[in-house]
Computed example of a mutant assay.
Amino acid sequence: MLTRRHVLASALAAPAVLRMGVGTAQAATTLKISHQFPGGTIDKGDFRDRLCRMFAAEVAKRSGGDLTAEVYPNSSLIKTNAQFSAMRKGALDLSLYPMPYAGGELPETNIGLMPGLVTTYDQGLRWKKEPVGKALSDLLADKGILLISWVWQAGGVASRSKAIVAPEDAKGLKVRGGSREMDMVLQTAGAAVLSVPSNEIYAAMQTGACDAGITSSTSLISFRLEEVAKSLTSGASASYWFMLEPLMMSKAIFDKLPKNQQDIILAVGADLEAFGRKGAQDDDIEVTKVYEKAGAKVSALDAAIVGKWRDIARDTAWKDYGAKTATSANLLKLASDVAA
């Protein structure tokens, strides 16, 4: 008996059309890319959606149409938190996915949002070529996931009331942090925490279930949190919140593709990393304009305040994460060796 999952898995992984060559018929493969962010076009909208659309267009161009991709925004294909598991099983081809969302299934992935561990884009993007990048890539590959494009995003705080700048500002508030480790830091600072994906922060703040949400500058804009916020803390100049939000691919699907198509996917993914960085940094600036226009008070972080958050994290979240597994301890050590 075919279950819905079997039907979905078959539909996602199946070749879509036949391309006719001279005397031959070659199956053209259509990959499906899922993400939780608002959809747009290749030229306008959330840069993460645009990156996925650019990826789809470029792999089609370089493969002569033998490899194509379709983008499904707003978690319209698969629910947000289920995307990582679906890729591991080969039931989803690709996703631009916030890495620590996989923390419940694979705790080591929480290294992708460890408060105060990454404090600049240069530092985060150096991971790829440093030992920490190899160790993380090897771990994920062993679990059925390939990193195609490394994307880091700085974050800030949207609050329904007072600004959350220093740790003491969070006391008594209900705050969405974005990872287990960020939640530990917030709890140490005296906050209550709420664990929801970024596409659910708006509703939580609107109903009062959440007083403030910490998320990327892009999500602060794309999810229109300025409509429910009176204060913004910008991470444009400095931030303790950097999220690894890469374009990932199912290893099972990747391994079935011919070598030339694999090479195209990896090359396009690497080429798009510069666009990802620019998109994130542009939004770090744009978010202030959006919130000021909406009438919110905007505050900024500086190195001294980031240091306060890092000190709490080092004594709580970093220790807890490093004690989880030998792999976690090694990843934390290797990441700490990458200078800011």
Score class of each variant (00 low, 15 high):
162 K>C: 02
164 I>G: 11
164 I>S: 14
164 I>F: 15
167 P>L: 11
167 P>G: 12
168 E>P: 09
169 D>T: 08
170 A>P: 14
172 G>C: 05
175 V>N: 14
176 R>C: 04
176 R>H: 07
177 G>A: 13
177 G>V: 12
177 G>I: 09
178 G>M: 00
178 G>R: 01
181 E>Q: 07
182 M>W: 15
184 M>H: 05
185 V>C: 03
186 L>G: 01
188 T>I: 01
191 A>Y: 12
191 A>T: 05
193 V>M: 03
195 S>F: 02
195 S>M: 05
196 V>M: 06
196 V>T: 13
202 Y>Q: 01
203 A>F: 05
206 Q>A: 14
208 G>A: 09
211 D>I: 10
211 D>Q: 04
213 G>A: 11
215 T>I: 00
216 S>N: 10
216 S>W: 03
216 S>T: 15
217 S>W: 04
219 S>P: 00
220 L>I: 03
220 L>M: 05
221 I>M: 13
222 S>N: 11
222 S>V: 03
224 R>I: 00
224 R>Y: 00
224 R>F: 00
225 L>K: 13
227 E>I: 00
227 E>W: 04
227 E>S: 08
227 E>F: 00
231 S>I: 07
232 L>C: 01
233 T>F: 12
233 T>V: 10
233 T>C: 08
234 S>R: 08
235 G>D: 10
236 A>G: 04
238 A>I: 08
240 Y>L: 03
240 Y>Q: 11
241 W>R: 04
241 W>Y: 15
241 W>Q: 01
241 W>M: 02
241 W>S: 03
241 W>D: 02
242 F>C: 02
242 F>K: 01
243 M>D: 06
243 M>R: 08
244 L>R: 08
245 E>V: 02
252 A>T: 13
252 A>N: 12
252 A>Q: 14
252 A>M: 10
254 F>P: 14
255 D>C: 11
256 K>C: 07
260 N>R: 15
261 Q>T: 02
263 D>N: 10
264 I>M: 07
265 I>V: 13
267 A>G: 09
267 A>C: 01
268 V>R: 12
268 V>T: 10
269 G>I: 08
270 A>V: 08
272 L>A: 03
272 L>D: 06
273 E>H: 10
275 F>K: 09
276 G>D: 05
280 A>V: 01
280 A>E: 04
283 D>R: 04
283 D>L: 02
283 D>P: 04
284 D>S: 10
286 E>G: 04
287 V>H: 12
288 T>C: 13
288 T>S: 12
288 T>I: 12
289 K>P: 01
289 K>A: 15
290 V>F: 08
290 V>K: 11
291 Y>P: 11
292 E>N: 15
292 E>F: 06
294 A>F: 05
295 G>W: 07
295 G>V: 12
296 A>S: 13
298 V>E: 07
299 S>N: 09
